[in-house]
Nucleic acid binder design. Sequence first.
DNA 1: CCTTGACCTCAAGTGGACTTGAAGTTGCAT
DNA 2: ATGCAACTTCAAGTCCACTTGAGGTCAAGG
Lengths: 143, 143
Amino acid sequence: MLDISELSRASGFSPSKLRYYEEVGLIRSVGRRGLKRLYEDEVKTRISLISLAQTAGFSLVEIKETMGSEGRPDLDRTALAAKADAIDVRIKELTALRDGLRHVMNCTAENHLDCPRFQRIIRVALTKKQVDAKRSKKNPIKW
Amino acid sequence: MLDISELSRASGFSPSKLRYYEEVGLIRSVGRRGLKRLYEDEVKTRISLISLAQTAGFSLVEIKETMGSEGRPDLDRTALAAKADAIDVRIKELTALRDGLRHVMNCTAENHLDCPRFQRIIRVALTKKQVDAKRSKKNPIKW
DNA sequence: CCTTGACCTCAAGTGGACTTGAAGTTGCAT
DNA sequence: ATGCAACTTCAAGTCCACTTGAGGTCAAGG
């Protein structure tokens, strides 16, 4: 059992952030001592997961949906598979970007945007994205 | 030479977004026909790059800084190296998250957060992040 | 010449993810 | 009993990345 400041210290999340997450249902406290929230240890793992999912680019709502806010999550396997696939796409993009950056560092071309090797590296990820955009229902056409 | 709607169609960015990016100095138009902006073809590559960098989790300001808004970017090599390294970290996190998700899909443990294999997968990325947080100057202590 | 439609500007609005501040409450040490 | 640090709530504020809307301008076609 942790109070909010202990959890904050353990997780690196500010108390206000923890309260906010609780408010939106991403984590929960199991009770109070007086006014003070009490958290179970389990919530630390949950927070790590949230943090990770955020760096993966998912919104809090998405995270909440796929985590299932309760003890017996009963997660939707196809939803999880979709998330995993989405992450794979992102990893590919990031890899391309990183390789592009590393190339630019060593490339002597006066204008990097003209360097054919650079362009090829970048185009890989771009093409992938446009395909995705085409069939996405949650990202509608947007203009 | 493209006008804004052609560029929009080619890039998948809404016209308002393109105008916004121009306003903040991420892209530029090379002139006007009447009122209408004219863009060079080169800007498409630039936009792809911006898009990529965003999915990597960089803010527009960061992107602008490391792209150098002009033709002769004169990029700071150490800044680029830092970005590339940051992307590597993110890739590791994403890989852990993806593996975690895929594991959960096949894991029969009643509570996934208790599954030791899952916890191990997640902890890898978490540890990495906390180390980073500790020495980051741009991410001060935050609470 | 005049209309039309695609563009323009500029200010204000939106949504997500928090943070901040004011005012109240509580367990614990003195 | 009293003080006070550490919590609490709730409303409002902030920052980023855009979008929306009102009102204006231009050039090409009829």
